[in-house]
Design a binder for these strands. Sequence first.
DNA 1: GTCTATAAATTGATAGAC
DNA 2: GTCTATCAATTTATAGAC
Lengths: 193, 193
Amino acid sequence: MPAAARPSYSATSLLDVAVQVFNERGYDGTSMGDLAAALGITKSSIYHHVAGKEALLGLALDRALSALFAVLDEPGAAEGRARDRLEHVVRRSVAVLDRELPFVTLLLRVRGNTPTEQAALARRREFDRRVADLVAEAIADGDLRDDLDPALVTRLLFGTVNSLVEWYRPGRGASADEVADALVEMTLGGLER
Amino acid sequence: MPAAARPSYSATSLLDVAVQVFNERGYDGTSMGDLAAALGITKSSIYHHVAGKEALLGLALDRALSALFAVLDEPGAAEGRARDRLEHVVRRSVAVLDRELPFVTLLLRVRGNTPTEQAALARRREFDRRVADLVAEAIADGDLRDDLDPALVTRLLFGTVNSLVEWYRPGRGASADEVADALVEMTLGGLER
DNA sequence: GTCTATAAATTGATAGAC
DNA sequence: GTCTATCAATTTATAGAC
């Protein structure tokens, strides 16, 4: 991996700029001309690095999904009471958001227009399913109130987590840990019996 | 799939179909050809009803914003303790989401690419500001825990509300009232001291 | 209120020189 | 690794007939 200097890009350093522009203007609202302008190179130069616009999107979505699924495989997500494993997944998901914000932001805005986007949506649903299992288990354990529907709780909980991409900016305002603390206090605090 | 044999629209009935397609494919991902196909008429016929694609967006965003601001002017949002007024705004915002789901969904996805979108974002920020005032007041009253930042709480709270557009569908699964109940239990429940 | 036909601009992508 | 030049397809929008 050559540390990018001035007017020379690799497939990955190019991706960072591209994803930023995708998030600013929306993926569909971004033309290859927009990307070229942001990169400071011409449209055709982009095709030297990647197959096209959709391949760029695929790389970005893959990076976000890999980071999120890695959380589910951490020890803290596999050991202990379900309620604590759930808190671990929530806190570590916020950490992923902090670390990979542009990529996760892009993932959460995908609509399913292309096969690339549909595949990403399918993986997102798998992630949600595994979290929902955790919520159901925590309720069965008696650690979360049982008068609320597990599927509904899961959606509200991760709806709150995902909504962070709308305003959270690393290094500005509250830190990722402070946000995670407040989020856990508000959500899990209200879900405990 | 829609509009088998009903080739006559008004500006508002056309808007319903257009907004649905905008939400399915994204605004930028929707061409006038896509709209024409969904409407069962030709592209040029659309221009008989509206000035263009962006005017269609403007009408839709206006409808969502009007409904949301109307909530702030209801008696329940102006009388009583701040904490109760806040709960009123949350519950009634969920009701607006239920009633005007496609329009609010579109509003929440706007990125600010055009003047029309920028104006909508400015009005959204004004709505958020008025909710933040309510949260700050409820904390000052001692009705919500004071160890959390009011601005942060506001963002988490309405982040949760806004995330409903990602999965809530009227008449499918939980009702709007059930969703509002669960949401208030989880969020305000966790925010009470 | 809808149509056909078409203009005018923009789009994603390729070829080949340096 | 970047460039100029160009293409074919698509896009928003208009003109004018029925």
